[in-house]
Amino acid sequence: MTETTDPKRSIVRAESIGKRYGPVVALRDVSLRLAPGEVLGLIGDNGAGKSTLIKILTGFHQPDEGKIYINEEETVLRSVSHARELGIETVYQDLALINQLPVYLNMNLNKEKLRRPVRFLDKKAMREQATVHLADMGVRIPSVDTEVGYLSGGQRQAVAIARAVYSDARVILLDEPLAAMGAKESAIIIDLILELRQRGEVSMVMIAHNFAQILEVCDRVNLLQHGRITYDTNVDDTSIRELTDLVSAEYRGRGIRSDEPE
């Protein structure tokens, strides 16, 4: 399965990615393509390899096999920092925010602005820019001086996503951004993602279990099953019903697939 000639320009392309943890095969022969400005939904049962794939695209894990192309250029993502330098940011399930730090320092975590000549933190500049930026994206919080621990779940997630955009990300990877959120909290995030999609400045890959939300915010959906992408469709060509059937099909009647060794 070689898919080297891709007519569409992609911002991120993964080709035949394989990853195993000891005896456990997490991903096998996964190929994925993300167009500029596109929002791609990644669905699949628990343990299908979604998080592993995200962690490979973000440089946190190295794939055992396969290649990654950033802007059609073959790239080895050496680390999270390296991926960030290339404009790939992640918003993790476990929320990469520090509760004890105020919003503006979280927005600038590991990218702190420093004064010259003495390299102290330039808190004033960081505060101002964080305030402007959050307002621009419609994220409402009491103040950028608020410690993140005091924010609601939706606000925290919004800050995490805004941080990714703020750091000039071109690709944002969202690992279950809507997990464990109420309707009001989810609405904050969905609005933010829709806003970003409309602007078209960033591409996003989003893991989610709620298919209604996927269909609302994504352009395209990929289904991961047993470490493989088994279905790739535009959201306009599918439905909640179809996605639900596909994800649960293997447990209904067909039993465990016998063509899978292990």
Binding site: V80, L95, A96, I98, Q100, L109, N110, L114, R119
Partner: peptide, 28 residues
């Protein structure tokens, strides 16, 4: 006091103790 409140070292120290996984993921 200045190191803790005015430098990256200080912020990263708080980040490391506050949420080490998150700090790692942010590249701290």
């Amino acid at each position: 006091h200045i190191v803790l409140t005015q430098t990256r070292w200080g912020v990263h120290t708080i980040a490391t103790g506050g949420n080490r996984i998150a700090a790692n993921e942010a590249g701290v």
